[in-house]
Structures are given as C-alpha cells and as structure tokens.
Amino acid sequence: MTVRLHSLSPQAGSRRRKLRKGRGIAAGQGASCGFGMRGQKSRSGRPTRPGFEGGQMPLYRRVPKLKHFPLVNRRRFTVVNVSDLNDLPAGSTVNLAALESSGIVNQPKLPLKLLGGGELSTKLTVQAAAFSASARTKIEAAGGSCEVVSD
C-alpha cells in the first residue's frame, strides 16, 4: 500500500476537539471562560511577563549583580610571602612544619601557599600546596626549587 497525502489521518483518540470558550453555560466554559471572576489574570491578553511579581520589585532586580559574590567552596591557605624565607638557612627544605618550628607561621591549620611579596636571596627547596606565579619565579631565580604537595 502506498501512502498518499489524502490517505493520511491521525490515530483514533489522538486529537481532541478545540474548546469553544464563551459559548454558553452548557459548553462548560461559558461566560468567564474558566478564568474566574475579575482581576488581572482574567483580562484579555492576560499572562503577565515572566518574573513579574505584581508590582513588587522582582527577584532578578533585587539580587546584587556581578561583584562581591563569595565563592562557595573557596580554597583557604596559610599564606607566607617569599621575603619571610630569607631568615632560613640556605639549602634547607621549607614546608609547613619547618615554618612552624622557625616561628614564621603560628597556627598552621590550612595548607601552605607561597606568595611573591619581597625578594629572596637564599637557595631553598620549598614544598607547598600552591605557589603564585611570581613566587615560583623568585624561588627558581634564587637557585631553589618548588614542589607542589597535596593538601
């Protein structure tokens, strides 16, 4: 059997008749057509725009935009500048335990991060969870090495 346009028809029960609103009480959708009595939601052209809250300042205008949102799962570090490492003996290995014993860090609860503040003149092997780009270049320029250790 070949399918022709005139022989196509929808499957039985798949198409429902269109509701004829406002055609009397017997039609089931007479008078107010199912929109209730009065009010904004019963008027013609009725749906309010998305985000409209009845004249109240809508949520998308109440929330702050762009700046100063806190990071949800921010990584926190014990921060030490490169200039603080000048007091350590040359050739030594610097990690969180060594910094605590030398008195540079008081309470090391968080992993160590080295920042590039100041200058470094001693050759050191530094073990930290993170390095800033400037700290890495200053440590390597002084002849030392940077090792990233897990938190």
Rank of each mutant, 00 (worst) to 15 (best):
R17N: 13
A142L: 01
I25E: 12
A133G: 03
K123M: 13
A97H: 15
S101F: 04
L8Q: 08
D87G: 07
G117R: 01
S83Q: 11
S145V: 13
A97V: 05
K113I: 03
L19Q: 08
V72P: 01
A26T: 15
L19Y: 05
F77M: 05
P47C: 07
S101Y: 07
E100I: 05
H6P: 04
S101I: 09
S7R: 10
L96R: 01
E119P: 01
P70G: 06
T78N: 07
S101N: 13
P108N: 07
K41I: 01
A12Y: 06
A90T: 15
E100F: 11
R74D: 09
R46H: 15
K65H: 13
K41A: 11
F35H: 10
E100W: 14
L114Y: 00
G36Q: 07
G28Q: 03
V148A: 06
L115E: 13
A27W: 10
S14V: 05
R46G: 09
R49A: 13
R76T: 15
P70T: 09
T122D: 02
L8K: 11
G28I: 12
E119Y: 08
M1G: 13
F131H: 02
L96W: 01
G116Y: 01
V72G: 03
A97C: 05
L120T: 04
Q127I: 00
R43C: 08
K65C: 05
R4P: 02
R43Q: 15
A90I: 07
N73M: 14
L88R: 10
V79G: 03
A142Y: 04
R46P: 10
V72Y: 12
F77D: 04
E140K: 07
R46Q: 13
D87W: 00
Q56S: 06
K41D: 03
G55R: 12
P89M: 05
P50I: 07
K67L: 15
Y60Q: 06
T2G: 03
P108L: 04
K41L: 14
F35A: 08
Q56A: 10
K138Q: 10
L85N: 02
P89D: 12
S92R: 09
Q107R: 15
P64G: 11
S121L: 07
L66M: 12
G54R: 06
Y60P: 00
K113F: 02
N86H: 03
L99Y: 00
G144N: 01
V3N: 06
L88H: 12
S44T: 11
E100A: 12
K109V: 11
P58T: 02
P108K: 00
V82W: 00
V148W: 02
M1Y: 09
A27D: 14
K138I: 04
T125I: 14
S42I: 02
L5F: 12
G36S: 04
V149L: 08
A141L: 09
K18V: 09
G24V: 09
S9D: 11
L115A: 06
S102C: 08
L115P: 02
D151V: 09
V72I: 15
F35K: 05
F52V: 01
M1K: 11
E140T: 14
P58I: 01
K41V: 01
T48D: 14
A97K: 11
A90V: 12
R76P: 00
N95K: 06
A26N: 15
Q127S: 02
K113V: 05
